[in-house]
Design a protein around this nucleic acid. Structure first.
Lengths: 365, 365
DNA sequence: ACCTAGTATGAATGCGCTTTCATTCACATA
DNA sequence: TATGTGAATGAAAGCGCATTCATACTAGGT
């Protein structure tokens, strides 16, 4: 009662060796039925549960896959729905990027007999959470920018790692498998839509200050579409924000409207949360969306459709990204250890789709 | 390169003993700065990452909390939104019960320095997934009916377990901590609302065939409200379905409408998914909701608000349930091993709230 | 110069299980 | 009866780390 039972206890009480006890769990058929039953009975009686740690140590594999994601929780997000929709506060409406990936990974992992260990990066934790995760899984996925490149480099020498969202780091991480979405294509198509289908030409783009491959790619798509339409644009977004939250989006809209001489006809944001924040600013300033100003986001999170007007955006197949990540990991894992290093790194780009809603004028508000 | 580096490798290359290497990670201050740096440099060079398994084995604690949840995924769920809302397929809209709990647990776990291991029960997997989880965590939460009572009984003797949703099993599991929601209160209030505020009196309840404490409690609330209003009801739901999915909900609505002589004025379902399924059936049959028939669900999942008409339901604080679960576990874990058994089992009931929407006639469709 | 209280480090043991490899046993074959 | 076979089981050696205890060393104190 005081100490948890081990193989030794079970072995002793059932008159067999620990090897047999182990076999009963690992490979039941290799033990005579009669013996097996006896062992199982004792185990049940004692309350024995094999230690995953010991198991993992001895067999050097855990049957667990991991995911490290950034703590992007947006405190605003939860009250937004209320404000925008007139319904009660609805925390379950705000399904984040990472939630989708978790779901995708969990499902795929289960199919392959793995469990999923998830951990969000604490901003400046002393102990790198990665080390914690990395030490207990057979392989894991990392959302871009969650883990210091340096750490990743070290860890990826030890076990399969797949990088999610964001291009392959050019430096030392180019041996990682990698999954991204067609950021550039999506933003280009969305921009083209605004220009050609809605006839808008005075556009403004709001991105992220810190270097972010995704945002850069999106901005690139924006620029391409503009140039293709003969609209001149700078090499930089019209505004860069410090964080891609709703609060910053709201502030950005204000700044942009104050700054630019003639009001832009459309504000394009690098993600949905900022776009939603901007909606508020515009309402406060008495501007109608999309009549006075069109607004678009990127990501396709649930929130984007719940606010009014619903935000036109680019949907990323986040769930699928999670599934693909697991597939990649499993493939590496089953390919025999040597092959793990030998195999060429895989890099896939998942397609995105433009979702036309009310905020650009495609649907009634 | 071929074999992953261990403490031994690091120790050797940096000219210290493995004990020192271990200390560098566990208790950095106990090692002279100069030595520490040397060790860390070698570790970085070698690509060393401490093995969580070995760590766990030696220190008998993992720093991981677990969650076992049932595989309630509803394949229909994803196309529903499209049909009901006229928008594109929107997989991110369907945030399930378990997703919320995961989120709550993850967040609380992170606050306490734990990671989260999640695993859905494969229907009839040979290896109990519980064993898999149980063996690798310090404690875990179980969604009711995910794990055979017998297994739970065994495992709970070994580590803290908190049971989520569903009343305390009366038999042998009454020493587990336990969190449930006010199922009965919620359903009673919702029913009262239909009767008193909307003047409906011909009601029909659809529940679950298999014994489910939650559904039973909900039905009980329904019965109480009916009786209080002088409406006679049987001791059994009007219909029991084999699974609480949309497909079953749709089928149930058909069956109910065909069977009952005079059409019920309201269909009350034991969860949202069934209610949403019923919406389709009603539309197909040319019945208007809520004018011809009111429909209600239970749970308050995101889907319930996205369909048209939005479904009136009872919201459960699932996220909070996840958080509370972690708090409970952490408390047990930090209370010293002996206290773990000594402490009285905690049982808490979280409040729910009725969400009035269009499907009962409270809001415009 | 000698003893003491720390401090930094090493040696050794054990955590609970998996996994060869060897052994035993029951039978079938010669 | 001697021999070979395959099945069931045991013995023992790790897996990679934490930790206790012992030891070497440092700096004070007298």
């Amino acid at each position: 009662m005081s100490t948890t039972p081990t193989v030794y206890d079970v072995a002793e009480r059932s008159g067999v060796s620990i090897a047999t006890v182990s076999r009963v769990y690992r490979n039941p058929d290799s033990v005579r039925a009669q013996t097996r039953e006896r062992v199982l009975a004792v185990a049940r009686d004692l309350g024995y549960v094999p230690s995953g740690n010991a198991r993992g140590l001895a067999s050097r594999s855990t049957g667990v896959l991991g995911l490290c994601f950034p703590d992007y929780s947006d405190p605003d997000a939860e009250s937004e729905v209320e404000a925008g929709h007139g319904d009660e506060a609805d925390d379950e409406a705000a399904m984040l990027y990472s939630d989708q990936i978790i779901r995708g990974m969990e499902r795929a992992a289960r199919r392959h007999g793995y469990a999923l260990l998830i951990a969000a990066s604490l901003k400046g934790g002393p102990e790198s959470l990665v080390a914690k995760v990395a030490g207990r899984v057979d392989g894991f996925a990392v959302l871009a920018r969650t883990v210091p490149t340096e750490d990743l480099e070290v860890i990826s020498r030890r076990q399969p790692v797949v990088m999610l969202a964001g291009p392959r780091e050019s430096n030392q991480l180019d041996h990682l498998d990698h999954i991204e979405v067609a950021n550039s294509d999506g933003q280009r198509e969305l921009t083209r839509h605004l220009i050609e289908d809605h006839g808008l030409r005075r556009l403004a783009y709001v991105g992220f200050a810190e270097e972010s491959p995704d945002v850069e790619a999106r901005f690139r798509g924006y620029v391409e579409a503009c140039r293709a339409a003969g609209i001149e644009v700078g090499a930089e977004p019209d505004l860069r924000v410090p964080m891609m939250t709703q609060a910053e989006g709201a502030r950005a809209a204000d700044a942009l409207l104050d700054r630019l001489g003639d009001r832009p006809e459309a504000l394009l944001f690098a993600n949905d949360q900022m776009a939603v924040g901007a909606l508020h600013t515009l309402e406060r300033r008495g501007l109608r969306v999309p009549q006075d100003v069109a607004v678009t986001g990127f990501d396709g999170i649930a929130l984007s459709r719940l606010v009014r007007p619903a935000v036109t955006t680019v949907r990323q197949p986040m769930r699928r990204m999670g599934e693909e990540a697991v597939e990649l990991l499993v493939r590496r894992l089953s390919g025999g250890q040597p092959a793990q290093n030998a195999a060429e790194p895989v890099s896939m780009t998942l397609p995105v789709s433009v979702v036309r809603r009310a905020s650009c004028g495609c649907k009634p508000a």
